[in-house]
Amino acid sequence: MRNNEDAFSTLHPTVVFGHFVTVVGVSVVFLHPLILAVSFVGALAYVCYLKGWSGIRKMFPGVLAMMVFAALFNPIFNHRGMTILCYWYDNPITLESILYGLAASLMIGAVLLWFVSYNQVMTSDKFLCVFGRMIPALSLTFSMVLRFLPRYFVQAKHIAAAQRGIGRDVFSGSWYARARHGSAVFSIMLTWALENAVDTSDSMLARGYGLPGRTAYTDFRFRQRDLAAGVTLGGGLLVVIVAIVAGVLRANYFPIFDLNAASYLSWLVIAVWGLICATPLIMGLREEAVWRSLRLNL
């Protein structure tokens, strides 16, 4: 399962998780059009890279629909702003709220797309690696839920088949009978799961669960390259935050839309931000290039 991961995904989970928190967090907090546009493009490019064209075709319409919805939603319900363009059912539609809606739409698009790649990259074991030490009991519970789930689906099939064998078919008979048989399957499932859970806890006890000082093992190792990536990411984030707080990049939507004038400094910050957003893609492409050159040398 760890075979087909791209270069970014093979970074240590804390770095990967940190990256997602950064890109999503900055996109949500700072509604600067350029920041959002860069974030959106970065997210879209990475999703393209991860999922390919067919993957994009499957999920992008949904994302687009939400973006359109957000772009329309704001001007209709938000009437702040000085520049009134027209009236809709006696409510003013302002230029500022349209621009704000567009920004919100970009923000939603970017966040949703980052989550698409997050769902693929941050697998449950990586999540456990990040939080295993912080919240050991919850992490273990979480890991157990993930262990039980596939097992329950299999068992539910077995139970349905067994019930069918003694005349309680979920798929034939009257509507009422089928609902009753379905609920029987669920009840048997519950009974089975809870009764067998005791065995699981015995197995935990037998292996010393509950002793003080439990550690959280993770199969992931923090390497030099993770440190480098982490430091770079952190540095970049710091630059962006300082720049925004210091007002190098500023965007006001209300009462009147106002961006501060472009300066070399602001373009530099955007470039840093762009690098952060493009890191996963760049890492992936670079490694593919290395592969290609290796194959050529053969």
């Binding site: 519970t141 539910a156 699981t200 509950g210």
Partner: peptide, 19 residues
């Protein structure tokens, strides 16, 4: 620091709710 049995039962119920 919940006991093994509590953790298992909480995980079981969660898994059932998710399933």
């Amino acid at each position: 620091r919940p006991q093994a049995r509590e953790i298992v039962i909480i995980a079981t119920l969660t898994a059932i709710a998710v399933a």
